[in-house]
């Protein structure tokens, strides 16, 4: 009797283990996105696999993968104009900490059709559930839908394509293999970005895996930027010399005309 009980326990543990042991694997097509003089955005590919999944459920398409691309956390200041003696002036302002410089969500279907909003909100997945810390409220995290300043911050970022949701940007190559194309806009912020993939089933999160890549100025652009910031005096003098040379050169060329 004891043996049976033990056996049953082991079997049930194995079953549970098999069921709850789904893992995500993920890779990126690049580690560095180079920003050179001809940079006008770039598409990167995120690919991955669902491992140790229940085959029947896998073939029925019961697993869902969501991919978030999240930029550096930055400070942002939101200003509101007000009419003062007939002229529109920046009046009230609010400062935020920990605002993602970039956020894009990738999925096969609109995420809210698959996962309950309360779950998304607690996990902070989706443009609607992004948070930041307003400095004047003691740096306590709030959703970017609370209040007009937060909403404006979120709206401006959406307008400039820095916050985006891309349903139907994930393709299934086989029931367990997926591929997402992430298109980075021309104004993608310089810095490290985190790619976070989530595995869901029945609206419940099973696993997540992260990777980072860097958007970096390269070559001439990198050199110019570093010079301007690290040796700004030398940079300023070089700018002036370039202008003097251009002016002189134009004068020489056009003198005869």
């Amino acid at each position: 009797m004891n043996r049976f009980a033990l056996l049953a326990l082991i079997v049930s543990m194995m079953v549970t283990a098999v069921q709850a042991n789904e893992k995500l694997q993920m890779g990126l097509s690049v580690d560095v996105v180079p920003v050179g003089s001809d940079f006008s955005g770039q598409d990167i590919v995120v690919f991955g696999a669902i491992e140790q999944a229940d085959q029947a459920q896998l073939y029925r398409g019961e697993y869902d993968v969501f991919i978030e691309v999240i930029g550096d956390l930055q400070e942002a200041i939101v200003r509101k104009k007000d009419r003062i003696s007939g002229i529109w002036i920046n009046a009230a302002a609010r400062e935020y900490r920990d605002v993602p410089s970039f956020y894009s969500l990738h999925s096969r279907n609109p995420i809210e059709e698959v996962v309950d909003p309360s779950v998304l909100s607690s996990l902070g997945i989706g443009v609607k559930y992004l948070k930041a810390k307003p400095v004047d409220r003691g740096n306590i995290e709030e959703f970017l839908t609370q209040g007009e300043f937060s909403s404006a911050l979120r709206r401006k970022r959406i307008e400039s394509k820095l916050f985006a949701e891309n349903p139907s940007s994930i393709d299934l190559i086989s029931p367990s293999l997926f591929r997402a194309s992430v298109s980075l806009p021309p104004n993608v912020p310089i810095g490290f970005h985190t790619v976070k993939a989530h595995l869901f089933k029945d609206g419940r999160k099973l696993d997540e895996v992260t990777h980072t890549f860097e958007v970096r100025k390269v070559g001439f652009e990198e050199w110019i930027y570093n010079l301007a910031h690290q040796q700004s005096l030398l940079y300023g003098i070089l700018c002036v010399l370039l202008a003097i040379f251009t002016g002189w050169f134009a004068n020489v060329i056009f003198r005869k005309n």
Partner: peptide, 21 residues
């Protein structure tokens, strides 16, 4: 531009990455 009501009253300025790079 100064006297006509702007299309958008709000403006956002990103103020440097906190991590620094």
């Amino acid at each position: 531009d100064l006297v006509v009501t702007p299309d958008d009253l709000f403006s956002v300025i990103a103020a440097g990455a906190e991590g620094g790079h």
